[in-house]
Each structure stands twice: as C-alpha cells, then as structure tokens.
Nucleic acid binder design. Structure first.
Length: 359
DNA sequence: AACTCGGGGCG
DNA sequence: CGCCCAGAGTT
C-alpha cells in the first residue's frame, strides 16, 4: 500500500473542491444532468481537448438525443458524426453500448460500476466519470490529468504506464473525495490538470493547492509523473538481394507468423554480430535457398522505422555463383512490372519504387 | 506486458 | 517537423 499524507490529502481535496466551484469553465455538458449526455462527453474527451469536443458534442446530441436514438442509428451516420475526432472505435463502441443499454437496462444508463464497465468502450475511467458526475456516486475517475496532479501533490514515483499503478492513484483519489461531492471534486482534479497543473511549465503560481504540493515544495514538479521512457527502436542492419534472371527478380513470402507475416520481400536477412553485410547476405541466401551468391554492387539503402525496430537495409545487386533456386508457392521469379501485384512491407516497397529504372 | 488506434498542440 | 498527449481493446 502506498504511503501518503492523509491530512494533506483531505485538505487538498477540500481546496480543490472550492477552487472548482469558484472557477469551473462553463462547458455545455455541465449544464445538463442527463447521464447519456455526460457519457457521450466523457467518451469524446478521451485523448481529445475540450475545445475540439464541444462542437462535436453539440451536433451529436442533436443527431442522437437519446440512448435509443443512438442505438437505432445507422453506423455510417454515427461514424460520420464522429468524423475528425479520431479513434473511431470509440464511436462504434459507444453505439454498441447504447444498444446493450437498450436491451439490458431498458434504455437507462446504468448506475453501478460493474454494469457500466460491462459496456463496450467503457473502462475504469469512463465508468468512474459517469457514476460520479451523473449519479453523484463517491467513486474516483482517474485520467491522465489525475495521474499528473496526484503524482505531483504526493510525490508518487510509480510508473504511471504500469497497469497496477492505476490502483494507487485510485485509492488516493478515493480518499480525497469530500463526502458526497465526487462530481465536483473529480472534475476539479481534472480541470486543474488541464488548465494549471499542465505537463510542461505548470502554472504553480495560480494553483489552489500549491501549499500542499510536495513536488512544488522541492521544485521537482516537472519531473512528475514518472513515466518509463519508451525505449528507442532497436537499430537493425538488414540486407536484401536483387537476384535477376532476365527481366525477372526473385522474391519470397514471409512466414505466416511474426513480423510482417505473409508479406512478400526480397531475400536477405539481419546482419549478425561480427558479420559484414556481405557475409550476412551470403549466409541468408545459402540457408534459405541453398544458393551461393556474390554481392556485386550496392543498389540502394533503405531506412524504415517500426515501433520497436529501425532497419537500415542495404540492397545489393547479386549474382548466383553456385546452385539453383527452388521455386515454390512462396518463392518466385517475378517480372519487374508485375511486382506491384504483390504485397510488400513498406521497406521493401521502397525498393520496388527505386526499380523503375530497370523497366 | 506490448501494441494499436488519430488528431492536435507544442517547442 | 518530431515529440508528446494517454483510455480502451486486443493479443
């Protein structure tokens, strides 16, 4: 269990509540108490700024004013209304959830965490937000703003990217809720994060809870929240061979599992530790196709970044000096002008593009 | 636990 | 332009 200063937490909770009541922005969904309208706003606000959401939310409530209207709408109209907001599965899930609410709850947005969580697209944050804001339940709603504010207030060093750390923040937030006031407290916490306790250059000079903020006291607010730096893509030296037979080139299909499964590529592979690029290429062609090749000249260098890898792929014009390629369903000689019929990974597609001169 | 989905703001 | 933002579902 995480340690935090209980007294400071209660003080900050009350301070945040008072600040919110005095300073809250006049947002359209804050004028309503309709759980459906609030649910829609919270779904739209996931990873999306308030100013962007407002016009979408207003149009949405006109087009689909009730859970029933959304449930019965054409999916194409639903997606059209979401167009430009991004993360379109949010829209699809919202409609699926509306249909489930009609079937299971007679069109009434559920007022328990378990029932909300059971709806598609409703995770821990959205369930907490709807329950507290629409139904005045004293439950926490922890989003990215809350991670940031609480990690600074209490100097929490847990990595917020780890799933288990959400529990830490939820229990602190739950403890801070002034009884019966979760709706305003939760929104206050998030509003502070959105307008004052922002990621870069936080405006500590007009923060209502500056005096109880441990990060401010130590001048380390910019260091929080702690987030594992996503490691940069691992550099990989790749090789690929251009093997010609008249106007034909040799390509092969990648395995059905793993990276780029089932796509076509020029034969080659990764350079291993202690190998030269040429040695790697000769080895891969020997191992995979039983032929000995001679890299003759560098045809192209292609860079491609995946989320976890960065390929520097050197493409060599090669001659076969020994052996014959066994062709099959997955290994083919293909005329240059037919290559476009095959699906290549982007990196190999870049090679195909540069082949224009061979036509 | 790692990856995917998108558009927008910021330096 | 690249980097950051950070909910929920999927694998």
């Amino acid at each position: 269990m995480i340690e935090f200063d209980r007294k400071a937490a209660r003080t900050a909770g009350l301070g945040l509540l008072a600040w919110y009541e005095a300073n809250k922005r006049d947002l359209p969904w804050r004028r309503l108490r309709d759980p459906y309208a609030i649910w829609v706003s919270e779904t739209m606000l996931q990873q999306t700024r308030v100013e962007t959401v407002i016009p979408y939310w207003e149009r949405w409530l006109t087009l689909f004013p009730t859970v029933e209207a959304l449930a019965q709408a054409l999916e194409s109209d639903v997606l059209k209304a979401w167009e430009g907001l991004g993360y379109y599965s949010r829209a699809r899930n919202l409609q699926k959830a509306a249909q489930a609410v009609c079937e299971r709850h007679a069109g009434v947005v559920p007022d328990t965490l378990d029932e909300m969580r059971a709806l598609p697209g409703v995770g821990p944050y959205t369930a907490g937000a709807v329950l507290s804001i629409a139904y005045d339940r004293d439950v926490p709603a922890v989003d990215g703003n809350v991670f940031r504010v609480l990690s600074r207030l209490f100097l929490i060093e847990e990595d917020i990217m780890k799933p288990k750390s959400r529990k830490t923040f939820e229990s602190i937030a739950a403890y801070m809720i002034p009884e019966g006031r979760a709706a305003s407290f939760n929104q206050g916490l998030m509003e502070l994060g959105a307008t004052v306790c922002i990621p870069k250059n936080p405006r500590c000079h007009n923060c209502p809870v500056q005096e109880t903020c441990m990060a401010f006291a130590e001048g380390v607010q910019e260091e929080f929240p702690v987030k594992e730096k996503k490691k940069p893509p691992r550099p990989v030296d790749m090789t690929a061979a251009l093997l010609r037979d008249g106007d034909q080139l040799l390509i092969r299909r990648r395995p059905d599992t793993g990276l780029l499964a089932g796509l076509w590529e020029f034969p080659g592979g990764e350079r291993a530790e202690g190998e030269t690029l040429e040695q790697a290429l000769v080895r891969h062609l020997q191992e995979a196709h039983g032929i000995t090749v001679q890299p003759e000249s560098l045809f192209a260098t292609v860079e491609h970044t995946f989320s976890h890898l960065h390929w520097t792929m050197r493409v060599y014009d090669c001659a076969i000096v020994e052996g014959t390629v066994r062709v099959s369903e997955d290994v083919r000689w293909v005329p240059v002008d037919k290559l476009e019929d095959y699906a290549f990974p982007v990196a190999h597609g870049k090679i195909v593009k540069q082949l224009g001169g061979l036509l």
